[in-house]
């Protein structure tokens, strides 16, 4: 068939790059997580101390909870919204290309610019609150308010609550999540759009002839057919959500008091500000473990790995 060593010429370059820029840093992270290391002096082996420290680090748990909450808001919202946006754009209207491009703008907007605009909108006397004021609602300072969303919502109707169940997610975290959703939904929309365009028109027509209404076509024909795309979208969206950095860096710096601090931002602070590189590595290992767990759940929920690709 082919020479004995031929496959390795094919696999070699890719694996080499993965090895240098991926496997090695990953092993290095694992190694560093067992050391105390500050960049300026040689690493000192301390066993599992960093992990023990993370276990007892209140801030770590706070940040971890934030990150999971944030993913729990962002991922379902993205899966649903991007699907419906794609449905909307899946037609042959004359101006549809223009709309697709316009819808795509948030994706290619620099996070720095997006951060500036949204900070304006979110200010205590910004545009959003100006609109709310028209309805007699006094809005919060969206990126600085640490009250829980349910708590604040109940407060609108004059209901005061002390229960801890109403304190999450913080308004500020929710506001950050909205920016992510706004910026990423059109990205996943494109993936869905491709999926929708791959569905033969005959299939939709057939369902219609059978007397199915619009919603039934969506439910019984379209949603099952594009399930592989839903899997791809939810996996990419989950990983992206757990890795979110820019929104926090640009808009809140993790405040108010770490209610918008997410794991990747925390890792960045630990490594570059406190110079606690070993500890940062240990927290990274935690993040890695979480992502793996999520990915496995995702695969299971969506019906295994055979639907992801062509094989």
């Amino acid at each position: 068939m082919h020479g004995r060593y031929t496959p390795f010429f094919f696999v070699g370059p890719g694996l080499l790059l993965l090895g240098i820029f991926f496997a090695y840093p990953l092993l290095d992270t694992l190694w560093l997580s067992l050391h105390r290391y500050n960049i300026f002096t040689a690493p000192v082996f301390i066993g599992f101390d960093n992990f023990r420290r993370a276990w007892g680090d209140e801030l770590f748990w706070r940040v971890l909870a934030n990150t999971l909450l944030y993913a729990a808001i962002v991922v379902p919202a993205l899966v649903v919204l991007s699907f419906f946006m794609a449905l909307l754009l899946d037609n042959s209207l004359r101006l549809i290309k223009i709309f697709r491009t316009l819808y795509y703008i948030p994706v290619v907007t620099s996070i720095v610019v997006a951060g500036i605009i949204w900070k304006w909108l979110y200010n205590s006397d910004g545009l959003i609150n100006a609109v709310l004021k028209g309805y007699g609602i006094i809005g919060p300072s969206w990126l600085a308010d640490a009250r829980g969303v349910p708590e604040a919502f109940l407060g609108l109707f004059g209901i005061q609550t002390e229960s801890v169940w109403f304190t999450e997610p913080a308004i500020a975290l929710f506001s950050v999540a909205m920016v992510t959703i706004w910026k990423a939904a059109p990205y996943y929309m494109i993936i869905y759009l491709a999926g929708l365009q791959g569905i033969p028109i005959a299939l939709k027509e057939a369902a219609r002839i059978d007397g199915a209404g619009g919603w039934q076509v969506i439910r019984h024909v379209i949603i099952p057919t594009i399930k592989p795309y839903t899997l791809v979208v939810s996996i990419i969206a989950t990983i992206a959500a757990l890795r979110t950095f820019g929104e926090v860096y640009v808009m809140t710096g993790g405040g108010p008091f770490h209610r918008t601090n997410l794991l990747s931002y925390y890792i960045y602070t630990l490594g570059f500000k406190y110079l606690e590189v070993g500890y940062a590595a240990a927290v990274s290992v935690f993040l890695l473990a979480i992502i793996l767990i999520f990915a496995i759940i995702n695969f299971r929920l969506a019906g295994g790995d055979n639907t992801t690709g062509g094989a």
């Binding site: 993965l18 240098i20 820029f21 991926f22 496997a23 090695y24 840093p25 990953l26 290095d28 992270t29 560093l32 990983i239 757990l242 890795r243 950095f245 794991l263 990747s264 890792i267 960045y268 490594g271 590189v277 940062a280 590595a281 990274s284 290992v285 993040l287 890695l288 992502i291 793996l292 990915a295 790995d305």
Partner: peptide, 20 residues
């Protein structure tokens, strides 16, 4: 390779920087 699709860039930032 399949397993590593899940590793985020963030985790590797510091050691990757050292390699680079």
């Amino acid at each position: 390779i399949l397993a590593t699709t899940m590793v985020p860039f963030q985790v590797l930032l510091i050691p990757l920087f050292i390699v680079t």
